[in-house]
């Protein structure tokens, strides 16, 4: 089981969290003018990265808040977590992510 660092509560076991998929998928600013292809890109297409992946988690059985984390999908090692709204830290600078 993974140990995940909630930016608000600290390190907790995976079972307290719900996974929220790829982070930084921005909701379209003007949905009415979006083409079918752009809708499909937003709804369905994902990077599915093999390597450092920015992803959303929600600390459902804790503070209940969403946050983002960087995790290496080759090893499941977390490189850090950061608050919603903050830009994704670069993978080379994990110290900057808490």
């Amino acid at each position: 089981m993974l140990l995940i660092a909630c930016p608000y509560c600290g390190v907790r076991p995976e079972l307290e969290f719900v996974y929220g998929g790829q982070a930084h998928v921005a909701r379209p600013a003007d949905p009415d003018t979006l083409s079918a292809k752009d809708w499909a890109d937003f709804l369905y297409m994902r990077d599915n990265t093999r390597g450092v992946h920015a992803e959303r988690w929600r600390h459902t059985h804790g503070c209940g808040r969403f946050f983002n984390a960087l995790r290496d999908t080759r090893s499941d090692q977390f490189l850090g977590s950061y608050c919603i709204g903050a830009p994704a830290p670069t993978a080379h600078d994990p110290q900057a992510t808490r």
């Binding site: 993974l2 995976e14 992803e55 999908t73 090893s75 499941d76």
Partner: peptide, 13 residues
Amino acid sequence: DAYTSYTQRGGLH
């Protein structure tokens, strides 16, 4: 598992 991964292993739970 709940999360995407390429590790070819999963959580024991």
